[in-house]
Design a protein around this nucleic acid. Structure first.
Lengths: 183, 183
DNA sequence: TAGATTGTTAATCGATTAACAATC
DNA sequence: TAGATTGTTAATCGATTAACAATC
């Protein structure tokens, strides 16, 4: 709506677009504060900024990626990250043949430099795109370096301490959920 | 549990593992049929087969992948698909330089062959890993070929007719949801 | 038989929706 | 002012949990 230069929106309009009851929208928003004006509605730009604040996506975050294989390179080139204030700030790999290889504006670094680089570049999140057999070792190293939020693409069940937030991006599950609708 | 050679399980045990109330588990399962035995519990292998049946993941499905870039190649090599009865049976790309290129045991085909190959190989699902600018064109071609379940990795909002099931695998959202827990 | 556990009905709990005073 | 729309309280609805007869 902001892109379409629409300035204000009512809970009724939002409800139509999101296929939700207007009262639900007002109640959910009201839980976090008073963002609207009676008789007027919600100001689009203000609502966006408030929602970003609530979801904590109103700040820049540096991300470290471990595993310079096809998936790792694909993610590095994924330009939507940049738009959403997420920067891949370093890429690591265990394979000496890949060290120094250019990926975008970055060069692949040895995993041994992980700890130092995480501190230096203020990396707060990690992405794991190594083979399943290497994943636990990598997650341990990321945690040792102080990273507490990790997105794992390796098809492995990883063990992390309770203060670390691990999210598994399981592409199989996505496909399987679609399989339900086939035929 | 099957891998651990455990033969039977009670709703109480399942509840503990899944962090759910035992009554919830019994009720949910009972919705689909009577899978347990009073005084005994559920037989692990039977329960697995019934759940796979309910979720319709008890059959082999061939998948066509469009876009032989890094992400496409990464997905082709993703061996977990095979284990879950999902086979990438063909890879397409618009770039003539990629035609004939080997990816696993497949060769990259021109998109012009899509329609024919989908029929020939009984492809039921599609994966889109092309640039955002090409995605709508590709989804249209997949639909024209008769594919009704599509997983899209391109950061684009695609239009599909109501009988087609489109699922967007948005990697940004995954990362953003983790960002909430940073600091 | 006694203990265990299901499937299901009844009770409880929480989430959604309706209604409305406040007010722009 | 009259119409619109919020934030919030009250009413409704549905989902979760407890309880228990059936039975292995």
């Amino acid at each position: 709506m902001q892109d379409m230069n629409i300035k204000k929106v009512s809970s009724h309009e939002l409800g139509q677009k999101l296929d939700m009851n207007p009262a639900q929208i007002r109640k959910d928003l009201a839980y976090f504060g008073e963002f609207g004006r009676k008789g007027i509605g919600y100001e689009v730009s203000y609502l966006i900024s408030k929602i970003k604040e609530i979801l904590k996506i109103n700040r820049h975050i540096n991300v470290g990626l471990v595993g310079a294989g096809h998936l790792g390179i694909a993610l590095s080139n994924y330009n939507r990250f940049t738009r959403e204030k997420l920067s891949i700030a370093a890429i690591f790999d265990a394979d000496p043949n890949k060290w120094g290889m250019s990926v975008g504006h970055l060069k692949v670094q040895p995993v041994s430099e992980l700890q130092e680089t995480v501190k230096e570049k203020d990396i707060k999140m990690g992405i794991i795109t190594v083979p399943a057999t290497e994943a636990q070792k990598v997650v341990d190293q990321l945690i040792a370096a102080g990273v507490t939020a990790i997105l794992n693409f390796a098809p492995a069940t990883l063990k992390v301490p309770s203060h670390v937030h691990l999210r598994n991006a399981d592409l199989t599950t996505e496909l399987q959920s679609l399989a339900y609708y086939v035929d």
